[in-house]
Design a protein around this nucleic acid. Sequence first.
DNA 1: GTGAAAGCGCTAACAA
DNA 2: TTGTTAGCGCTTTCAC
Lengths: 331, 331
Amino acid sequence: MTIYEVAAKAGVSASTVSRVFNGVKVSPELIPLVRQAAQELDFTPNQSARSLRTRTSDVIGLIVADIENPFFTSLARGVEDTARAAGYSVMLGNSDEEESKEREYLDVALSQRLAGVIIAPATDHSDVSTLLAQNCPVVAVDRTLADADVDSVIVNNAAGGRAATDVLLQQGFRRIACVVGPSSTQTADDRARGWHDAMTKFDPTFDADAYLMHASNHVPGGREAFGLLLALPEPPDAIFVGHNLMAIGVLEALVETGRTPYEFGVSVFGDLPFVGLVPPGIHLISLPARELGEMAARVLLERIAGDTQPPRTIVLGTPWHPRLIGAPRSA
Amino acid sequence: MTIYEVAAKAGVSASTVSRVFNGVKVSPELIPLVRQAAQELDFTPNQSARSLRTRTSDVIGLIVADIENPFFTSLARGVEDTARAAGYSVMLGNSDEEESKEREYLDVALSQRLAGVIIAPATDHSDVSTLLAQNCPVVAVDRTLADADVDSVIVNNAAGGRAATDVLLQQGFRRIACVVGPSSTQTADDRARGWHDAMTKFDPTFDADAYLMHASNHVPGGREAFGLLLALPEPPDAIFVGHNLMAIGVLEALVETGRTPYEFGVSVFGDLPFVGLVPPGIHLISLPARELGEMAARVLLERIAGDTQPPRTIVLGTPWHPRLIGAPRSA
DNA sequence: GTGAAAGCGCTAACAA
DNA sequence: TTGTTAGCGCTTTCAC
C-alpha cells in the first residue's frame, strides 16, 4: 500500500494524498475522498520513507540505567506520557549501568536518526558527541554529563542528603552512618556530601570517614553495607540510605536483627515502592521521578522543535520535605 | 555522511561499502579500507533508508499493560535482553490496560514497519489483524488473543489458582476468599476458576460466590477488596490473591487490622517485589515473568526469521510450587 | 569481485 | 490549489 495507490483510487496525485496526511492545505472536498480511499486500502504511511525524505522522525530514545528500578519506571512513564501526548513514541534502552551497553543504544539512536534522546547516563563522561554532531538533541536526566553541553534535569542530591541527615539529628541520633552507591558516581557522591556537611556542621569532631559506606545500587548492596556497619567497633545509631533499592536491603537486615527504625534511625533519599509494608518510623524524602521524566521530555521536545537557547540545568524537587512513615517516635 | 562519501574516500563504489557493512563477500583487502574511511567520516548507516529499501527493520515493539508493575518490567527485561542479543532494539509502549492507547501503539508499529510485535493484550479481542495483514509477526504474552491466530506465551493461571488455594487448605483454612482482577479478563477469570475448583472439590457445599471478589489491578484494589471481605457476615479465614499489586494492598490492610498471615491465611499468585519486607507466613507462587519475555522474544525472532509453522501456545511455569515466606506456622 | 543504475515510498520545489 | 519531478540513502539486480 503506497501513497500512489491511494492517489489512483481517489483520483488525485500522490502529493495531494501526502498533503492530506500532513495537514497541508487542500481543497476541502478532496479530503474525504482521500481518507476514504486510504481507509479502503488499509493504507498506513511508511515512516521509513518519510524519515528518509524529511530527515526527521517521531521517535525519541530513552536510555535508563535499570528498568527494574521503580525510580526509572516512573521516570520512563513520565517521559512516555509526555512524548505520546506530543505525538512521539519512545524507544527504550537499558544500559544496566554499563557504558558498553549504553554505547550500543546511543549507536542505535544514531542509526535510527531518532528525533532526540533522553539519557540517564551510566557515567558522567558518557559520550553523546556523535549524536550532537548529527543535530540529535540530548537531554541528561537524573545525572549530568560532564563532557557535553546539553540540558540536564536533575535533583539537588546534596540538599537531599543534608535534609535526610538533619531529620535524624533532630530525632536525637548522633552516630549517623551513610550508605550510598558506588563512589565517584555523581549522585552517590553528592548525597554523601550532603550527609557529611550536615554531620560535621552539627559536630565538627564527627569521624565521617568511618561511617560512610559505598555499595552497589541493589537490595543486597544495602544489606551488606548494614552488616558491615553493625560490625564496627562503635556501630552507628542511625543510618541515611541514599538509594531506594539499597534501603530495602538495609530495612530487611534491620528487621532481621530485631531492631526498629524508632530505636535505630533510618532515613532514605528516594521512594520506597509499596511503602505500606515498610516498617514504620523511617523518614523518607520522595524523589519526583515521574516529574523528572516529564520535564526531560518537555525540554527535549522544545529542542526538537528548534529551541536554541543555551543548555540549561533544571533542578527539581528542592526544598526537600522528609516524611515520617507511621506514627511519631513517642507513640 | 552517506555511503557515497565513504565510497569516495575509500576509492570504491557505494555497493562495495554497502557490502562491507552487510557482511557480503568482498575482497579482503578492501574491508579495512572501507572501515577506515567510514571511521574517519563518522559514518553511521541510515536505517530509514535501509528499511525503506529492504522492507525490514531491526526494531521490535513491546506493548505492555502497566510498565510500573514489576511483573511487566521483568518481562520487558527478558524481551529486551533477548532481542538485544540478536541485534534488535525494542520500542516500548504502555497501554495502561486501555484499548485506545493499545491501538495507538499498534498503529505506530505498523507505520514504523517494525520487524515484529510482542503484546500483552489489554483485552482478549484486541485487534492485531492490521499487523498480520502486513506480515508483521505478533506474539501474545501473558494473555491470549481470541480473534487472532498468533503465537502465545502464557502461564497456566487456573492451575496457579488451584495450587495457591490448595496450600491454604492444607494449612487448615476453610473459608478461603479469592481476590482477582476485573471479571471477564482472562487471567483473572482463570485464576478464580482454579480457586473455585479447588474449593468445591474440597467442599462441594462451599458458597464460592460469596467469597469471590473482583477488583482493579492495583494496590488500592486489593485493599478495598480485603475490607469488603472482612465486612461479610461470615468473613473468610484466608485469602487467595491473584495479582501482585493487589496482594500488597491486601497485606497492608491485613497488617493494619493487626492480623498475621499465620492466623489469616494468605496466598499469592505472582511475585511480591522486595519480598524481604513482606510479613512472614504468606504463600507465594512465583510467576516466571522474565522467562515469559525471553520466550516471547525467542518465538518472535523465529517468526521474523521466517518460521511458518502453525501458531503455538507455549505454557510456562507449571507445575506450580508454592513457597512459604518466613518460618512455618508452628514457629 | 566490483560498479552502474534503478527504485523502495515519501515530500518539497517548482510549474501549471 | 494541484500535479510533475527529483531525490532522500540505501540495497540489489545486472553487466562487466
